[in-house]
Design a binder for these strands. Structure first.
Length: 778
DNA sequence: CACAGGTCTCTTTTT
DNA sequence: GAGACCTGTG
């Protein structure tokens, strides 16, 4: 490949960014300006034209998904040798380096990586030991303070020097030190430590730093606006020698301040590197001009930006739509129904759509409506797969096998499944371990010597440690996936779950099966699969990384998760003051700054859309179980009225009225479901775009179209239909099991026990209030 | 020691 | 509304 081939199809600025390989380079890449493309072509140019060895190139991204995508495109473009290029996230890059040199920092190479939940457990233990009243001081607040310190690369000692003058500062210094001590004893690092320790390694061992400085002739950092101070230090130390550092970012898309991102890294790049070349990519290849205009109108309300004006050659496209609904239910219903309609009409696939919102809590409404309308979706974020209890349990076994020093892991599983080892026993072992300066697991191995433990108890503990020792032997000649299977079966975990015989237990078992497939996947992909390697990959995975672009489904996710992605059709939901921008930002002391960050988030959201963008909001929304009125987000108002397609105004109808009338809570719940369910057209909030019900009624494609709630049925008395909205013989939909037929309804106390036959799951008995079944028309 | 039932707290965003 | 934590009982 020659230069012309590599730069073919690039615009002048993109070409410049590709060819400007020497020295510091700042690429200010507006949304949708083709920055990934530039980076990929730049790497190709380095390798194919300048004959740089692939192993001398380091490209850093924030998410695994971004790294994978870049890796694939690089592979396709340069082929042989591409795998030698380090395309990694900050965290995985640091881990890779730290594994190799962990001993120099007093860790061993099998160190474990703690997630936020693990950190919280450690902090809780410290609170207990120090007898701190958790009502007055929150563990999470302390952890947050520690994390901020780490992001600024402030050590416990430095922190103490700077902050010990007041009570809070003194307390945090104290806990910071203790927390670090605890982690080190467990041979564990948290997310922030990975960066901090990598930088520490470089600072304390110049020879190691030199090794990597020599190696990486060319470095590229993506999403530079979201780097924090340690990340900056990491990068700048590595690049100090050859100074071929190319950073790509957009200050308008800086949305991770809460995580320590330091926007000055990008704003001051030219001060830090006075000889930096600056390239601006301002042509947008993603969105129509209407969408781009809306984005520009919103973001221009921020101050202190790098001057930048995105433009496009694309046509104007459709106007940005704005729709306001009575409730969040109506909003979700509208969105889901419209998606369903557009897919059924054949103009779109499900994967063309994304629904973006500010908070994860909003996802439930959309999930429910999608299920209801049989729309395939993938929910990104929320509870991470790897944070689920059963997964953490199994991983704790693996961690104990791999790194017996990780006391958090061994304490977690010593009585899982139940072995008759209670809290008292755990405390005694733990105290013994503390005194002897050993790990929990090592102390457990000496159970019979621990004072206060009965013979019988010591024997139970011995069974546990014996089992772990067996597993260690197995680990020597079993693959990771085999080992997971062995753990699940031999520990009795599987039997315990099966004995429970509940839906929840079955779901947990399914998750474990999924973990096994992930292990298999890891074994096939990794060059040298190891247990540590698997644990590491699993620890650093983000939910967005699991999105497969090939699947045909709607994506539901937060605005934060959507960064870096694009979709033909985007819905931004919950455009309301107090939700977006969040009330937190409105009430904060540095409110102005925080609102600017929210505005950048809004900008990110708008610029995800290629063809059609719909902003939605609700008059009233249920928060904390309470319905509260909401006004339209300032961000919507910042877009000139004539640029918005506002649909047709509809009369407001308060759902609160529907709830009045002295019902008990159960009754109210039952009614509430109905009140929010699709209503007959005559009663409905009518907007030309929400009339999905009348459409789907005649739509032959819909096998399980939306239920048309018959308002007259409330006039009947005493029937289950009135109470539940369905009766024996009806088809109902369940959140998890899908559509099934009601076989029986039995009144039991305050609730109904409903028997439903689900074709895919068999016959289930469930309580109506809990199962939230909804009738579907056949 | 295990479990059930009640109480309290918290919801911004995440590698 | 959901999850963690506490408390009392078997």
């Amino acid at each position: 490949m020659n230069v012309n081939e590599i730069t073919a199809g690039l615009n002048d600025e993109q070409k410049e960014a590709v060819l400007q390989t020497e020295g510091p380079v700042l690429i200010l890449a507006g949304a949708g300006s083709g920055k990934t493309r530039v980076l990929v072509h730049r790497i190709s140019y380095l390798v194919n034209v300048l004959d740089v060895m692939p192993s001398q190139i380091l490209a850093i991204t924030f998410t695994n998904k971004a790294a994978d995508e870049m890796r694939n495109r690089v592979d396709n473009m340069i082929g042989f040798g591409a795998s030698q290029i380090w395309v990694m996230t900050f965290h995985s890059c640091c881990v890779r380096i730290l594994r190799r040199h962990a001993e120099l920092l007093g860790y061993d190479r099998y160190f474990t990586i703690y997630d936020t939940d693990d950190s919280l457990q450690i902090m809780k233990e410290i609170f207990r030991r120090k007898n701190v009243d958790t009502k007055r001081i929150k563990e999470r607040a302390v952890l947050h303070a520690i994390s901020s310190a780490k992001n600024e690369h402030v050590s416990p000692a430095q922190f103490a020097r700077m902050n010990s003058h007041d009570y809070w500062g003194g307390l945090v210094s104290d806990f910071y030190e203790e927390y670090q001590k605890q982690l080190k004893e467990n041979n564990a690092m948290d997310f922030d430590d990975l960066l901090v320790n990598a930088v520490e390694l470089f600072d304390k061992h110049p020879d190691v730093l030199e090794l990597y400085q020599e190696r990486f002739l060319y470095m590229m950092v993506d999403e530079y606006q979201d780097t924090n101070t340690v990340q900056f230090e990491f990068v700048s130390r590595l690049a100090a020698r050859h100074r071929n550092l190319c950073v790509v970012g957009d200050d308008d898309q800086s949305i991770y301040k809460f995580r320590g991102a330091n926007i000055r890294n990008i704003l001051n790049f030219e001060q830090i590197f006075p000889d930096a070349k600056v390239v601006r990519l301002e042509q947008n290849y993603r969105s129509t001009s209407n969408i781009l205009d809306a984005a520009n109108e919103v973001i221009r309300n921020n101050r202190g930006r790098k001057s930048k004006k995105l433009w496009t050659e694309k046509g104007s496209g459709e106007k940005v739509r704005f729709r306001r609904f009575q409730t969040g239910f109506d909003e979700a219903e509208y969105v889901a129904a419209e998606i369903g309609r557009m897919v059924r009409s054949g103009e779109r696939n499900y994967k063309d759509f994304a629904v973006l919102y500010r908070t994860n809590a909003q996802s439930r409404l959309f999930e429910e409506k999608c299920l209801f309308l049989n729309i395939p979706y993938k929910l990104v974020g929320g509870v991470n797969f790897y944070a689920r209890r059963e997964i953490k349990d199994i991983l704790a076994y693996l961690k104990t096998i791999d790194n017996a020093v990780d006391s958090l892991a061994s304490m977690r599983i010593v009585n899982i499944p139940k072995r008759g080892i209670g809290q008292t026993t755990v405390n005694k072992i733990s105290a013994y371990a503390q005194d002897a300066g050993m790990s929990f697991y090592d102390a457990a191995k000496e159970a019979e010597q621990i004072p206060g433990l009965s013979k019988a108890t010591a024997k139970k503990v011995g069974t546990f440690t014996g089992f772990i020792e067996e597993l260690r032997n197995e680990a020597l000649h079993q693959t990771v996936s085999e080992l997971v299977r062995t753990v699940v079966i031999d520990s009795g975990y599987k039997d315990a779950l099966e004995a429970e015989d509940t839906d929840e237990a079955r779901e947990r078992m399914q998750n474990i099966d999924e973990l096994i497939s992930k292990a298999v996947q890891y074994e096939t992909n990794a060059d040298h699969p190891t247990l540590s390697g698997f644990l590491e990959e699993v620890a650093l995975i983000a939910d967005i990384d699991t999105v497969d672009d090939g699947d045909d489904r709607v994506l539901l996710m937060t605005l934060h998760s959507a960064k870096g992605l694009e979709f033909p059709i985007v819905y931004m939901a919950g455009m309301e003051e107090g939700l977006f921008p969040s009330s937190m930002s409105l009430n904060a002391e540095d409110s102005d700054e925080q609102i600017e960050e929210e505005r950048r988030l809004c900008y990110v959201g708008i610029t995800r859309a290629k063809e059609l963008l719909t902003l939605t909001c609700a008059y009233e929304r249920m928060t904390r179980g309470q319905i509260e009125p909401h006004s339209v987000s300032r961000f919507v108002r910042e877009i000139a009225r004539d640029k918005l397609d506002q649909g047709r105004k509809a009369p407001a109808k308060s759902t609160i009225d529907n709830l009045k009338g002295g019902f008990g809570k159960d009754m109210r719940d039952a009614i509430q479901t109905k009140a929010f369910a699709p209503k007959p057209p005559s009663k409905m909030f009518t907007n030309p775009y929400t009339s999905s019900n009348s459409n789907s009624r005649t739509d032959a494609h819909t096998k399980t179209g939306p239920r048309i709630y018959d308002g007259t049925s409330t006039k009947q008395t005493g029937s289950t239909n009135e109470m539940l909205g369905y009766e024996v013989g009806d088809s109902v939909i369940h959140k998890k099991f899908g559509v099934g037929t009601v076989k029986a309804i039995r009144e039991g106390g305050r609730d109904f026990e409903v028997t439903v036959d689900f074709p895919a799951w068999g016959v289930k008995k469930m309580f109506a209030a809990f199962a939230k079944l909804e009738k579907v028309e056949e």
